[in-house]
Computed example of a mutant assay.
Amino acid sequence: MAVVLGNDDVSAALAELPGWSGDSGGIERSVTAPSFLDGIRLVAEVAHVAEAADHHPEIDIRWRTLTFRLFTHSVGGVTEKDLALARQINELIG
C-alpha cells in the first residue's frame, strides 16, 4: 500500500518540480498551451503516460489552460506515485 507523504516531504519534492504547488493532500500544475489543439494533444500524451503507470490525474481543460491535479485516491493524499507522474508531466510540457 502506498504511503501518504507529509507536508515537509511534499514541499521538498515540489522545490524540484517547477510549476507544481500543493501539500500532502494533493498537488497541481496549470499550463497554457499555444492553442486548444496543442492542449488536447498534451492531454492525450499525459493520458498515455498515466495509463502506463496505472495512475490517473484529474485534468481540467479550459480552452488553452490545462490543470493537472494529482493525489492517490486509494490513500487520500500525495504519494511517490504522484511525484513520479508529476515529473513525467513536466517532461511532456517541456
Score class of each variant (00 low, 15 high):
residue 32 T to I: 13
residue 33 A to P: 06
residue 34 P to H: 06
residue 34 P to C: 08
residue 34 P to S: 15
residue 35 S to D: 15
residue 36 F to C: 09
residue 36 F to E: 04
residue 36 F to S: 08
residue 37 L to E: 15
residue 37 L to Q: 14
residue 38 D to L: 01
residue 38 D to Q: 07
residue 38 D to F: 00
residue 38 D to R: 13
residue 39 G to M: 06
residue 39 G to D: 09
residue 41 R to C: 01
residue 41 R to N: 13
residue 41 R to S: 10
residue 42 L to H: 06
residue 42 L to S: 07
residue 43 V to T: 07
residue 43 V to W: 04
residue 44 A to V: 10
residue 44 A to C: 10
residue 45 E to C: 02
residue 45 E to P: 02
residue 45 E to G: 05
residue 46 V to N: 01
residue 46 V to K: 05
residue 46 V to G: 01
residue 47 A to C: 02
residue 48 H to S: 15
residue 49 V to F: 04
residue 49 V to G: 08
residue 49 V to I: 10
residue 50 A to M: 01
residue 50 A to H: 06
residue 51 E to M: 02
residue 51 E to Y: 05
residue 51 E to L: 03
residue 52 A to K: 15
residue 52 A to Y: 05
residue 53 A to K: 08
residue 54 D to T: 12
residue 55 H to Y: 00
residue 55 H to D: 10
residue 56 H to D: 11
residue 56 H to P: 11
residue 56 H to M: 09
residue 56 H to A: 09
residue 57 P to D: 10
residue 58 E to V: 06
residue 58 E to L: 03
residue 60 D to I: 12
residue 60 D to W: 03
residue 60 D to H: 12
residue 60 D to P: 00
residue 61 I to L: 14
residue 61 I to S: 11
residue 61 I to F: 02
residue 61 I to K: 09
residue 62 R to S: 12
residue 62 R to F: 05
residue 62 R to T: 07
residue 63 W to M: 08
residue 64 R to E: 04
residue 65 T to Q: 14
residue 66 L to S: 08
residue 67 T to Y: 05
residue 68 F to V: 03
residue 68 F to H: 08
residue 70 L to Q: 04
residue 70 L to Y: 03
residue 70 L to N: 03
residue 71 F to D: 11
residue 71 F to N: 13
residue 71 F to Y: 15
residue 72 T to S: 15
residue 73 H to Y: 11
residue 73 H to P: 08
residue 74 S to Q: 14
residue 75 V to I: 05
residue 76 G to Q: 06
residue 76 G to E: 01
residue 76 G to S: 07
residue 77 G to D: 04
residue 79 T to C: 05
residue 80 E to T: 12
residue 80 E to F: 00
residue 80 E to G: 09
residue 81 K to F: 02
residue 82 D to T: 03
residue 83 L to T: 03
residue 83 L to V: 02
residue 83 L to I: 10
residue 84 A to W: 01
residue 84 A to Q: 14
residue 85 L to V: 12
residue 86 A to D: 13
residue 86 A to S: 12
residue 87 R to H: 07
residue 87 R to N: 09
residue 91 E to M: 04
residue 91 E to A: 15
residue 92 L to Q: 11
residue 92 L to A: 13
residue 93 I to R: 01
residue 93 I to K: 09
